[in-house]
Design a protein around this nucleic acid. Structure first.
Length: 329
DNA sequence: GGGCAGGTGTAAT
DNA sequence: ATTACACCTGCC
């Protein structure tokens, strides 16, 4: 169990919440689990302890700012950091930076800021008030829209371990090398020019043509990611919808995880399960109804509500048993 | 071995 | 405007 700061982000819940696919956990040998992942052109090593979230590597101010932004955190000021950043120790190695929760940039209202306040706001909802104690600290990352776009095309009708393997394989085959065993997410140009054999080797299956088509659109400029960032939500959704392989669900994921539109509420099987159980007395409900209901109910923080419901479903609403065939008449 | 996994496109009403 | 179905692949 994580010890959280008053306005805390739960690093594991956030990195494992299905919005990013390039983080792995390793044993810190007494220092707790360490998350390792490639963001942009760097491999980051991050951990959480009582003092907060620590950036173990790279030990640079640039890396600190980059990971802080990625996590939706704000680096502590140098005065607060004290020994933590830019102060070489006796061994000459820089000590790890500590990050703290703060304002998340993006299309959020000026207040509330910080996860704790968002959670407090959402807890006005009776159901979320019961859910959030189980899911506290589940945050939204600020990721590269291009990586998110491709990752969620790959995610369709797929599961997380396999998505992760495919993304890793794509990076290894087509991305720039960042360290001895790490590769950056490939550019649209590299992806667009990849031979079919390469994509097949990444086990994309029938999604390979979607990935290639999206890459060609982006590489040719017919899909302008920078413009996408500036578009209002609905316009961005329509633009994304025109890309082969992007339907309602994937568009919502890209809008939320890549473009910071926190009013969106992607409904996957887990969120659907949670919503039907918690809001509709366990009765089946069409996905589009659930989405409309949730957006109206949670407003500007629908995306955060979705994160909590997803985390809750994953931790508490797993389908029991492999298959239940007998059902009472 | 059939079914399913964080859906979408297509063809059929 | 809705509904059914196939689809790569790995895993149970």
């Amino acid at each position: 169990m994580w010890t959280l700061e008053p306005a805390g982000l739960d690093l594991r819940r956030t990195l494992d919440s299905g919005q990013a696919f390039r983080w792995r956990w390793e044993d810190g040998h007494g220092c707790g689990p360490i998350a390792t992942g490639i963001v942009g052109r760097h491999r980051f090593r991050v951990a959480q302890d009582r003092d907060g979230i620590r950036l173990l590597a790279p030990a640079t101010a640039e890396a600190r700012d980059a990971i802080a932004r990625y996590l939706g955190l704000r680096p502590r000021s140098d005065a607060q950091l004290g020994r933590l950043v830019g102060a070489p120790t006796i061994t000459g190695r820089r000590a790890p930076a500590v990050l703290c929760d703060g304002m998340r940039p993006g299309p959020l209202p000026a207040s509330p800021t910080g996860l704790a306040r968002i959670e407090a706001t959402l807890a006005a909802d009776r159901v979320l008030a019961r859910v959030i104690p189980h899911t506290r600290g589940t945050g939204l990352l600020i990721q590269d829209p291009w990586e998110v776009l491709i990752s969620f095309i790959v995610s369709q009708n797929n599961n997380i371990p396999k998505i992760s393997r495919s993304i890793d394989a794509l990076a290894r085959a087509l991305g720039d090398r960042v360290d001895e065993n790490g590769y950056a997410f490939p550019s649209a140009e590299r992806l667009a020019g990849a031979p079919a054999g390469i994509l097949r080797a990444c086990h994309l299956g029938y999604r390979a043509p979607y990935v290639r088509a999206a890459a060609r659109l982006a590489a040719s400029g017919r899909l302008d990611l920078a413009a996408l960032r500036r578009m209002p939500e609905q316009e961005a959704r329509d633009t994304l919808h025109a890309v082969p392989g992007i339907g309602d669900k994937v568009a919502d994921c890209i809008l939320l995880f890549g473009l910071g539109h926190t009013t969106t509420f992607p409904v996957d099987v887990w969120v659907r399960r949670a919503m039907e159980r918690l809001y509709f007395k366990g009765r089946p409900r069409p996905i589009c109804d659930i989405r409309v209901f949730a957006r109206a109910r949670f407003g500007p923080f629908a995306g955060y509500a979705q994160q909590h419901l997803f985390a809750y479903a994953r931790e508490h609403l797993r389908p029991r048993g492999p298959h239940i065939s007998a059902r009472p008449q």
